[in-house]
Amino acid sequence: MARIRTALTRGRINPSRAFREVQDPGAGGIVVFTGTIRNRSEFGKVDGLEYQAYREMAQKKMKAIAEEVAKKWPVKAVSIYHREGRLKIGEVSVVVAVSSAHRAQAFEACRYAIDRIKTGVPIWKRERVRRTKLWVEGKPIRA
């Protein structure tokens, strides 16, 4: 059984910790995706942003995605972390770490997980642009 760790957190995310968590003697590859806050968006220059989450459901969905990944690919471990609350430019908003016997599976599984996080977890992003706060128009949530 793959080791799974997921968390929605107000504190800073440490990608190195996620990397260490998924290290495994049986792994030939580890892929760590790190999402960071960009200084520009479709609205213009971004000064900062805030994630709002439907906590209970978001935690449940993050865990379900990690479990789904572990079912679809022969991964050794999956760690998924997502921030909530206010973040500054450059800060880490999300980390997905996957270890697997072979790199192709680790890349695929990691890519799948981050894509699912974007469409299947109830988290919203509000950007601060020119002193106004705007909700980023995302995609309707998918089951």
């Binding site: 978001a58 997502h82 974007k118 469409t119 109830p122 909700w135 995302g138 309707p140």
Partner: peptide
């Protein structure tokens, strides 16, 4: 019941 606008996590 959660009322969920389009999501934008990640």
């Amino acid at each position: 019941i959660g009322v969920l606008p389009p999501v934008a996590g990640g």
